[in-house]
Amino acid sequence: MRWFQLLLIIACAVVVAFLLLPLVALFLRVSPGDLIAALGSGVALDALIVTLKTSAIAHLLILGFGTPAAYLLATKRWRGHSATVALIELPLVLPPVVAGIALLSVFGRLGLLGETMDVLGISISFTQAAVVLAVVFVASPFFVRQAIVAFEGVDTGLLEAARTLRASPWRVFSRVALPLAARGLATGSALAFVRGLGEFGATIIFAGSFRGVTQTLPLAIYGELDQDFEAAIAISVLLVLISAALLTAIRWVPSWNPFTLTSR
């Protein structure tokens, strides 16, 4: 079976090389000095501010609604439960451009809710709120899916024990389920955040690319591509660094593996 081992190793090497090579090339194109200089340019800085602001708001919305939703989906079963989970996961496989069109057809001026909101004096499309909605739509499944798995991984016996110790449902959630699911939640949170940072297709269709308003880092890269390629590369490197830092940070969240508590 030696040839088979060899095959596995070669396949793995090809995968790693193919995924890593473009990233290496990116870093070879910019020196740290160039990076800082490019970021000093107005376009990049504006885009960074727009991105951080919209991502932060979007992420708060994702965590705020996604965590309780995932807890419910993980701890209760009802008719249509699996259909609900499937619907939540749908945006994962939806092309982002389609997501943008779909959002426009709800919130756009001619959309489902557009007229009503027009009367109320609210306009969402092509504003910063549209960026936030696009990011939430595309990124939230990454969090909710992972959060369901994390909550399902918490030993039901511990939740029941908490209830016999006179803990209210809120206390069971906040003192037992939440800390024990922390690692999985953090992973999902980071995945969703990184996915949100890189959001492009839905944003450009639903929010447009207006500098200082809706132009996020990915949109800025696209915008700079034919004007200042070096700047585009510098912004790309910045995105890679932020993403890598976040994925590394997850490892610091404590994990409560159920198998470390077997009796001895």
Binding site: D155, L158, A161, R163, T164, A167, L180, S263
Partner: peptide, 16 residues
Amino acid sequence: EKRRVGMVFQDFALFP
């Protein structure tokens, strides 16, 4: 949580 029952579970169910 409203029953005032103290329960010791088989695997003890201690919070890790």
